[in-house]
Design a protein around this nucleic acid. Structure first.
Lengths: 211, 211
DNA sequence: GGAGAATACATGACCGGTCGTCTAGCGTCT
DNA sequence: AGACGCTAGACGACCGGTCATGTATTCTCC
């Protein structure tokens, strides 16, 4: 077993992060104990506060890392040179697939970690709220850019406000994910595409083009 | 069948329910302690378990009572003989007003209690999940009826699926309420009307009629 | 109308357990 | 020997929940 001489000699931090990510997704923040995280990570509890300042600091790190990964995924899907509406549709499909995979692995639809924590903690932990605000703002930015392109191509209704529509789409995603989690049914997400077409006021006769 | 009222009578149960409703709205379920609820209600902790079997049983009661009240409000707004779209619009305005009032009183947008608890508890407490599923189902029913009427009047697009559209509207409400809570800004809700018109595919030229 | 009996509620000490957090010190390396 | 990476174990506070005991109110029966 090779271990580098300098820097960390333990992967405990990563194991904690990995376990915490899954547990927070499944059980939220308040109902989750540090001991449980450490047990799931196979790391002694005494080590926790060597790697993290506090439970809240861990949550912030988990949030940040999860957003880095998700943003990369969103950018990969939304940043192609395909048709803008097509890109949005693929985002929805990817979102649903994520929930299906999570359900297969853990038995439950975990929903959106950011949405979950937003409702649970935004009124209790200002730092977490700020982080989540920034994340949702960035999500809206990413979608707004694609909506603008769709408008420029005449695919979206000329009357739609790009940013407003992007916010509506994000809200629609969050609302649908809530229903999917409540019903433990990822299929709740496969109306996102149709909803999106409505919110973007895409004319009925041009919808089959991207279908 | 009469029930003799032997012994004392107390309003402690109602005081607990009242306090619990506000605290659950503001701080969620897991982060809330029985002792804190009792302190806020001005009831000794020992009395709590005389009136409620458990903390979870209290939550179920709070959920039920809150839904009874909210359903009455929804029915009052949606059950009039006014124009269907007009009724939907008033529902959105009432929703926003509820959040404004809560914000004035407690300083924070509390969001939707059912949505909050759905994301926090649906994967932890099956009984609560069932209750919340039934509530959202009933909400969708209430809106579906109005959407159907709007369709019959030709106000909504003929291609819309009433139940699907109702679900989309509920999802949109929940998503917007999430953003309103995260940003502590009830104004996030005043695009609900426009979103609803989009989701119902109401023709642009006929929108001013109800505006 | 007065005396119990029965019921309805009040109360706070207390239980085992878990919470997030911290510190003293272990083992391993230079 | 000294520094460093790591961890065992304990800390006080608090968790949801229990219980013995006390008091207030209304019942029945005379």
């Amino acid at each position: 077993m090779y271990s580098p001489r300098v820097g960390r000699t333990s992967d405990a931090r990563n194991k904690i992060l990995e376990a915490a990510k899954q547990l927070i997704e499944q059980r939220g923040y308040s109902a989750l104990g540090v001991a449980e995280i450490c047990a799931a990570a196979g790391v002694p509890k005494g080590s926790f506060y060597y790697f993290f300042e506090s439970k809240q600091a861990l949550a912030l790190t988990v949030i940040d890392e999860h957003w880095v990964a998700q943003r990369a995924q969103w950018e990969a899907v939304l940043g192609t040179d395909r048709d803008p509406l097509r890109r949005l549709r693929e985002l929805f499909e990817a979102t649903e697939e994520v929930q299906r995979v999570a359900q297969r692995r853990s038995g439950v639809v975990v929903g959106c970690m950011f949405g979950n924590l937003a409702l649970e903690l935004s009124n209790q932990h200002p730092e977490i709220r700020e982080r989540l605000q920034a994340i949702f703002d960035a999500q809206i930015d990413l979608i707004e850019a694609v909506v603008t392109q769709a408008k420029d191509l005449g695919e979206a209704g000329g009357a739609v406000d790009s940013r407003g529509a992007a916010r509506s789409i994000v809200a629609q995603i969050e609302g649908r994910v809530l229903l999917a989690k409540l019903l433990n049914d990822p299929a709740q997400l496969d109306t996102l595409w149709r909803d999106c077409l409505d919110l973007l006021q895409v004319p009925t006769n041009s919808r089959t083009l991207v279908n």
